[in-house]
Design a binder for these strands. Structure first.
Lengths: 238, 238
DNA sequence: CATCGGCCTTGAGTCAGATCAAGCCCCTCG
DNA sequence: CGAGGGGCTTGATCTGACTCAAGGCCGATG
């Protein structure tokens, strides 16, 4: 459970080194009884033995093309999944907040990398254990399909956002989603403007300007850069 | 199996009427022996009893929010999946060509609509039959996960395209994908410029201009609007 | 407490792609 | 064969978001 030093790099610095530290985890995971394994609840009524692990900011949980041996659940902090173009352009597919499951792959390898946004605790479960459980119990299989279902629905929504919405609609949709998710009009943003931009298909300057504009028009409050109070975003989005 | 008249509408005309014709299908499907049911191969070694159906251009296979009772496979023609914004902006999530399976949902309802691009034959299988088969046989369940896997991988790629690529990269990626898919440098485009634009997050004019430009620089040939011969797209995309 | 380094904001200028507007091509149908 | 219409192309213009650049804020650090 040791935290490895996060790799500091500017916003658009390209190829990141793989954070190490998995060998130890994999070893301990193979002997759960001796090393403090615990039950991880991947879904309602879907608990499997696994382990916890702390990631430093920007540390990778897994990299693109890496073997998908584990399924992850965020306990605290935040995780982003990213794909890179060879020249360093980056697309953040999704952010995962406490309670979210990520890294649930269908194929043998991950098709994107996952990195901690801030210091983050994750629980991990061996994929083989998940698969065995699903084959034993159709209800568990259905649970997994439900997880994947929400994932896919979010991706579809996000494609519409990336393909057809303008800057203020994108930012508004994002903030509304976070607000709904937090059940609160007050949002703590764990991610930088650059992360938001790479998620929304904008530049960080445009994100910043758009949020300033929203604050000026009293659709939101910005007590500081990482805190947003939503007032009248519905009106603004429309 | 009767073809219902396609609804003719301009490119960006918004809310489409639901094409009817399912009641008949559902009835026949319930009595397969008597009405010509056949085995539909959803994946390698995954054949289930189902039916065929012909869709006219622009006819819906299913609509957004409709119950996901069937899984579909394209036999001939082409299908697009679309999501709409209230003001008519449209995002085409994917095109499905002969051999492709679509409409495989995790949740109870479809999260997008599916329409025929051209006249299209599809095979349909009851979803309940698919689920029952998956619960009986883990190998079938794995087949379904593989299908979903490719779907998800494509969505991820497409998000990167929508979020971070410029117009010529988008068109180039699209044409390359079709070319790879067809195992041929000659592509027949079943879809209009408008459909391409709504898939790539561009306007139809930009798609047209970009392709003309590619033809002028001899990266492609355009014998006519719906046929493309790929020459040197790799170079152009880079 | 001063300095440093990330982030964030803001401004000015530019440009890729959207918008608006003809006109063309080609297929269908009378 | 001529008219009509849908889809495609092309041109002119506009504009929203990007780029480049400067400076401010703030937390970490010595």
């Amino acid at each position: 459970m040791s935290a490895h030093p996060g790799l500091a790099y500017p916003c658009l610095d390209t190829p990141r080194e793989r954070a190490v530290g998995y060998d130890a985890v994999m070893e301990t995971e193979l002997a759960p009884a001796r090393t403090g394994g615990r039950l991880v609840e991947l879904g309602p009524g879907l608990a499997l033995p696994g382990f916890t692990l702390t990631l430093s900011p920007n540390e990778e949980a897994f990299g693109e093309e890496e073997e998908a041996d584990f399924v992850y659940k965020v306990l605290s902090g935040a995780v982003r999944t990213t794909r890179l173009l060879s020249d360093g352009r980056r697309q953040i597919g999704a952010f995962y907040l406490p309670g979210d499951v990520f890294g649930l792959e269908f194929g043998p390898v991950h098709r994107f990398s996952a990195e901690a946004v801030t210091q983050t605790d994750v629980a991990i479960v061996r994929r083989s254990a998940v698969e065995r459980a699903a084959e034993r119990d159709p209800a568990i299989a259905r649970q997994l399909w439900t997880l994947a279902s929400h994932e896919l629905a979010d991706l579809q929504d996000h494609m519409l956002l990336l393909g057809r919405k303008n800057a203020s609609e994108r930012v508004a949709s994002f903030l509304l989603k976070l607000s709904r998710r937090a059940h609160s009009r007050v949002i703590e943003l764990p991610m930088s403007r650059c992360d938001m931009a790479d998620h929304l298909g904008l530049t960080l300057e445009t994100v910043s300007r758009t949020m300033s504009q929203m604050a000026r028009s009293h659709a939101i409050d910005l007590p500081n850069a990482r805190r947003v109070v939503v007032h009248d975003l519905e009106a603004l989005a429309a």
